[in-house]
Amino acid sequence: MKYITFLFATLFSLPLCAAQLTLELGDHSRTWQTAELLLHPATQTLHVADDVSYKRDMTYRAIPMAVLLEGLKPEDHLQAVALDGFAAELTAAPLLNQSGAKAWLAIEDPARPWPPLSQSKPSAGPFYLVWTNPQASHISPEQWPFQVTRFTRQSPVAERFPVLRPDARLAADSPINQGFALFQKHCLACHRLNGAGDAQFGPDLNLPHNPTEYFSGNFLQQYIRDPQSLRHWPQARMPGFNPSVLSDTELDQLISYLQHMATRKVILP
C-alpha cells in the first residue's frame, strides 16, 4: 500500500508532457498543440469562481471556445471526448456565446501543472471546458468536461441513436420528451441506454434493467440528488444533481423518460 501511494506521488510530481487537442468540425479539422494554444493571441489569464471540478476558485490560461469553433452555427451539435471515456453532448449555441455564460478552453501548461482533482487522481488537464457566469445559461456540471482531447461535430443525438427516442406519437412538449432532452444533457455523457451512446464510463440505464425497475419509492430521486446517500464507496464518480442544476420538475421529467424507456427495450444480439 505504501508503495502504491509513493508511486502515485511520484507520477504526479513528474513534469507533464505537452498534449494535443483535435477539432473535427465536419468540413475541416485541426489539431492544436499545447504550446500553440498557450501562445495564441486570444489566450488570456482567466479567473473561474467556484470551479465545478475543483470545488474552489481557480485561475487558468484559457482561450474562448468561440475562437476555436469559428465557422460553426448555433444549431450545430458537438461532442467533447475525454481521456476516461466521458463523452459530453453539447449544443454549439452556448459555446459560441459572447455574453452571459461564456465558454473557455483552459489549457494546462506542462511547466505549471494544475493540482490533482483529488488524492490519487490526475488533474483536469490537458484541456478543460470551463465557464464564466454559468448561471446565466443554466450550465450543468456535465457541460464542464475535463481531461478533454477532442471536440467533434456530430449529428443530433436522436438522429445518431434512434433507439433512444421516445414514442413518436407523444406530443413534443410531453414530460417524456422533456425528459429525453434532460437525459441528453445530464446523463448521456456517462451512460448508454439500449446499448446506444458513445460513453465508455457508466452502466447502461435500460439493459438489462432500468433503474425505475429496481429503485422503489423515492429512492431513485434520492440517488440522483445524492448518490453517496444510498451507495457509499470511495471511487464513486457520479455527481449529485441538486435543485439548482436539476429542478424538481425536471427530475420528474427525467424519471418519466426512464420509466417510458423501460417499456421500449432493445434486445441486443
Score class of each variant (00 low, 15 high):
M1V: 13
A9P: 05
A9W: 00
L11C: 01
L11R: 03
C17P: 02
L21R: 05
L21D: 03
G26C: 03
S29F: 04
S29T: 14
R30T: 11
W32G: 06
T34A: 00
T34D: 03
L37R: 06
L38S: 07
H40V: 11
A42H: 12
L46A: 08
V48R: 06
D50M: 11
Y54K: 00
D57G: 15
Y60Q: 01
A62M: 06
G71T: 04
P74T: 05
E75D: 15
A80R: 08
L83T: 12
L83H: 01
G85I: 11
A88S: 13
E89Q: 15
E89S: 09
A92M: 01
A92P: 04
L95I: 09
L96H: 02
W104T: 05
W104F: 08
I107E: 11
A111G: 12
P113A: 10
S118Q: 13
Q119I: 11
A124I: 01
L129Q: 12
W131E: 09
N133V: 08
H138M: 07
W144N: 15
F146V: 00
V163D: 11
V163Q: 13
P166G: 03
P166I: 07
P166L: 00
R169E: 12
A171C: 00
A172T: 02
A172E: 10
P175N: 01
F180A: 14
L182F: 01
F183C: 08
Q184D: 03
C190E: 05
A196N: 07
G197T: 09
Q200I: 04
Q200Y: 12
G202L: 04
L205N: 11
L207E: 10
P211M: 07
N218K: 13
N218G: 01
Q222Y: 02
P227I: 03
S229P: 08
R231A: 13
W233N: 14
W233Q: 10
W233Y: 15
P234K: 11
A236H: 06
A236G: 14
N242A: 12
S244T: 10
S247M: 08
L254H: 07
S256Y: 03
L258C: 08
H260M: 09
R264T: 04
R264W: 01
I267N: 14
